Computed example of a mutant assay.
Amino acid sequence: MKSFSKLSVGVLILLHTVNLAAQQHENSRMYNPQNPEKMPITQIQKNKETIYKLYIDCLNTGNLDILDQIISEDYTTDYKGKKVQGPSGYAETVKGVLQGFPDIKFTIEGMIAENDMISVQWTFEGTHNGSFFGYPASGKKVINRAVAVFRLEDGKIVQNRVYPDRLGILQQIGVIPDLQAPVSERPNTKHN
């Protein structure tokens, strides 16, 4: 009887090991934008591909003409106190950043996907060479970090919220003093 229970435990451990190996193999087949043809694409992976396309193919190039491939006609969000809809509404929400930082480059630091939701942590770098929400060009290099949360349906974005470090941008372009900088380096401050 003892050898039967040892055998049962051994079989359970073996089955658990095989199951873990299968899970690791499936995880290794997750979407990789550098080599997408090697993997089967699930809906979550298609949604991730849509997000990569938004940042890499659209925002990094300024090619807003492809928004209809990424943003649903059903897209809605509140922007500056009004509701915007569809690809043209989304374009309205990003034009100010693209005009203010014409050399903008987004880097996706990470993504978490669950069902129809994707959270993205990104960094952008750019030079403030254009008007940005009414602030004239400063010529200063800026680095900004944010988290964005997207909801997708049928592979297109229908909602999003972006949580950027706007204070950091305004400090970097000299609109708001950086209180951690020495007084002599703060814009618009007087010292004796």
Results as ranks from 00 to 15, higher is better:
Y79R: 01
T50S: 12
Q34R: 07
P102K: 12
G100P: 02
E73M: 09
F124W: 14
G81P: 01
R151D: 03
M117S: 03
K95A: 08
G130P: 02
Y75R: 04
V97K: 06
W122G: 11
G100C: 07
V120Q: 09
T123V: 15
Y135K: 09
F133V: 05
I71E: 10
S138N: 02
F150E: 07
M111E: 15
E73F: 03
E37P: 02
T61E: 06
M111S: 11
N144A: 09
P36E: 05
G96I: 10
G139K: 11
E49G: 09
K80T: 02
V120H: 09
T123F: 04
S119F: 09
K38M: 11
I44G: 10
I108A: 15
G134T: 10
V142I: 13
V158Y: 00
D68L: 12
A91Y: 05
C58W: 00
V94I: 14
Q69G: 02
G155F: 02
P87W: 13
P102D: 14
N60V: 06
Y52A: 01
I118C: 08
L67T: 11
A148Y: 01
D78F: 14
G134K: 08
G100W: 00
F124M: 12
P36G: 06
V149C: 06
V147A: 13
G89Q: 06
D103F: 08
K141C: 10
I56F: 03
K156M: 10
I41N: 01
Y52K: 00
S72F: 01
G139N: 05
G139H: 05
D154E: 15
K95I: 15
S119C: 10
A113S: 15
N144I: 11
D116S: 15
C58Y: 00
G100I: 05
I41W: 04
Q69P: 05
D78K: 14
K95Q: 15
G155C: 07
P40A: 14
K53S: 13
Q45H: 10
N47W: 04
I118S: 01
V84T: 07
N144M: 10
G139A: 11
E153K: 00
Y90D: 13
Q43T: 08
T123P: 03
F124Q: 07
E114A: 07
D103M: 14
K140E: 05
G110L: 08
D57C: 05
I51H: 00
N115V: 14
T50P: 01
K140V: 06
T127C: 09
L98I: 15
K83H: 11
G100H: 02
V97T: 15
M39Q: 04
K80I: 07
C58G: 08
T93Q: 08
K46D: 13
H128M: 02
F132T: 10
L64E: 04
T50M: 02
T127F: 03
V147T: 07
F101P: 01
S72V: 12
G134S: 05
E37K: 15
T76I: 12
I41F: 04
K82M: 11
G81I: 13
E114W: 03
D57A: 04
I112E: 12
P136W: 03
I56D: 03
S72Q: 04
S88G: 04
I56A: 02
L54F: 08
F133W: 09
G62N: 08
G86R: 05
G86N: 12
Y55Q: 04
Y79N: 06
S138L: 04
P33K: 04
A146V: 07
W122D: 13
A113L: 11
N144K: 05
T127D: 08
D65F: 08
M39K: 02
G62K: 06
G110D: 13
